[in-house]
């Protein structure tokens, strides 16, 4: 039944509509929209958890205004900060995130279409190497002819998550007793460590590349993605999420190469600040906005590099949560005690 109040008048107007069903039957923007959505999710993942970008973190923030907490000492806020090792070398610093170029955006959008396809073929816990029959992708990244994808297992039981950390020797993220009121464990996951170091100089990597390329060359049915599942048993990344309603605290730990230098990228308007918590220097970045629509990144972030264990830790909350800086500082204090 028509919802219109005056059907006859409205129908007269409607009859003047020249747009018929056939005119838009062919509209299908699913691939284009999903490529952008996947790209956004990937960016968010990089910003929010640094899953695979070992040396790049993107974190927006703003000048920190105040610091509370007995064991916390604040230094003057500056736009970018550096952390040195005992040899005086910079091992961690903050820097302005650059806007991706059109080329990079096009590349990531296009690759997302393929990774999307691969994820559809993987079961949780599967880790796979893949090659795409796409000239643009292969010419854009000649150093990584074969890429990798992992479909992670979401552990919603804390004991199972801890068991997975032990089994895979992932960076330890133990239980926290000083969470803000109402926050509870939501889920945790680990991510496999790279199986092959220095890809193009690694015989195993090259063997897989050759095998997948051969399959691609001999295929004539339009197949674009060629995949090989891999056995894995070691992880180098752990992440855990605690929630209270729509609000979340994310804690993550990434194992680093001992001689690596880590750069944390932040928004152009953001300023980072160095804090001392339990005698340990940490970075603190506050986002310049709580508007999740314009900036989905976290509001507060606290992170540090453990130069003995070679692990980077980071604690963050969602952009529109009401947690204060001190709430995250308390979590950092507890973690710095248990990882000592």
């Amino acid at each position: 039944m028509s919802k219109l109040q005056h059907p006859s008048q409205n129908e007269n107007l409607k009859q003047m509509d020249l747009m018929h069903g056939e005119a838009f039957q062919d509209i299908d923007v699913t691939d284009k929209v999903m490529a952008r959505v996947n790209n956004l999710a990937a960016e968010k993942r990089i910003k929010g958890s640094n899953t695979r970008m070992r040396q790049k973190f993107i974190i927006p923030g703003l000048t920190a205004m105040f610091i509370l907490g007995i064991s916390v000492t604040g230094y003057a806020a500056s736009q970018y900060i550096e952390f040195l090792n005992n040899k005086g070398e910079v091992v961690l610093n903050t820097a302005a995130a650059q806007e991706p170029t059109d080329f990079v955006t096009h590349y990531t959008d296009r690759l997302a279409l393929y990774t999307n396809q691969i994820k559809g073929q993987l079961q949780p816990g599967d880790y796979a190497a893949y090659f795409v029959k796409d000239k643009f992708i292969n010419e854009a990244d000649t150093l990584n002819p074969v890429k990798f994808e992992y479909k992670w297992i979401k552990y919603t039981d804390f004991k199972s998550f801890q068991a997975e950390i032990s089994r895979t020797k992932a960076p330890v993220l133990g239980s926290l007793s000083h969470l803000p009121q109402g926050y509870q464990f939501d889920y945790g996951y680990v991510y496999p460590a790279d199986l092959f170091s220095r890809h193009l100089a690694n015989a195993e990597y090259l063997k897989i590349a050759e095998n997948l390329k051969r399959q691609a060359e001999s295929s004539s049915d339009g197949q674009k993605v060629f995949m090989q599942k891999l056995k894995w048993d070691k992880a180098d990344f752990s992440s855990v999420r605690y929630v209270q309603g729509k609000n979340a605290i994310t804690v993550m730990a990434t194992r680093l190469l001992p001689d690596s230098k880590v750069t944390i990228f932040q928004g152009k308007e953001a300023q980072s600040e160095k804090l001392s918590i339990q005698g340990h220097e940490v970075y603190y970045i506050k986002s310049d906005t709580r508007d999740v629509e314009t900036d989905p990144a976290a509001y507060h972030r606290i992170g540090w590099r453990d130069n003995q264990q070679h692990v980077l830790y980071e604690i963050s909350n969602n952009a529109d949560s009401n947690l204060r800086k001190e709430d995250l500082v308390k979590i950092a204090e507890e973690m710095l005690n248990y990882v000592k």
């Binding site: 838009f24 509209i27 299908d28 923007v29 699913t30 929209v33 999903m34 959505v37 994820k119």
Partner: peptide
Amino acid sequence: EIQDYVYIVQKYQK
């Protein structure tokens, strides 16, 4: 679960 967004796109795009 991003893949479920395909359903939303296909339902509303036209």
